[in-house]
Design a protein around this nucleic acid. Structure first.
Lengths: 104, 104
DNA sequence: CGAATAGTTCGACGCTTATCGTACTACGAT
DNA sequence: ATCGTAGTACGATAAGCGTCGAACTATTCG
């Protein structure tokens, strides 16, 4: 059977702008966010192609999750991460679209 | 006579989103930006009331200026810093308003 | 000129963070 | 139960960053 458990993350009211901006201000993490912005269904950690090891990738995903930028739930042995677009758009309308509008 | 020289700062095309986000992701700097958002005419370094020394303040202003977030010009012995709202809104529409919409 | 004011620069300090490798846990398949 | 796969946690290391005080530059005023 395929379990589906959500990992701990801040409630919408607990999200702080400083933490979000700090999370987004790291090249690798920003790339993850840009990737997730194009994948509404989320992606598994291992499917993210980046020039860092798996442990570093897990570290960045954790930072983003704890900042409230993304949400992660377990599906079998995989962990699917997806952008918390609703929460971010509600808290900081325009922020995400502005960031994503930036040239690569 | 009152000279008015602009300090070196990146052109609009040279501004990079990673640098901007990293600059904004620091509490003291974010507070400076929030303050400047309410003062279109800018403010002098010494008039910014923050719990850090003058040298730290100068440091943060430099980071923000070099990131392209704000613009500084000299007026006599004072240095007036102001938000580069036009450039930021053009490059990343919505980002600034989203950040400023965040609860204090 | 000299003194006062506004701000920057420099070196040092301690804290944080990005990265890695290894060891570990959780789940699925055989 | 055993093995393989997916991912996390931990410890170490090196680099980066925020902070300060002291020394320095630049401008105005007397």
């Amino acid at each position: 059977m395929s379990t589906s458990k959500a990992l701990p993350q801040p409630e919408r009211e607990e999200i702080r702008i400083e933490t979000v901006l700090q999370a987004l201000g790291e090249p690798v993490r920003l790339q993850i966010v840009r990737l997730l912005a194009e994948l509404p269904d989320g992606i598994a950690c291992g499917e993210i192609d980046l020039p860092v090891t798996a442990s570093t990738r897990a570290h960045h995903l954790r930072i983003l999750r704890e900042a409230g930028v993304l949400s992660t739930h377990t599906e079998g042995t995989k962990r699917i991460s997806s952008l918390r677009r609703d929460d971010l758009d509600c808290l900081y309308p325009g922020l995400l679209s502005g960031v994503l509008a930036a040239p690569r």
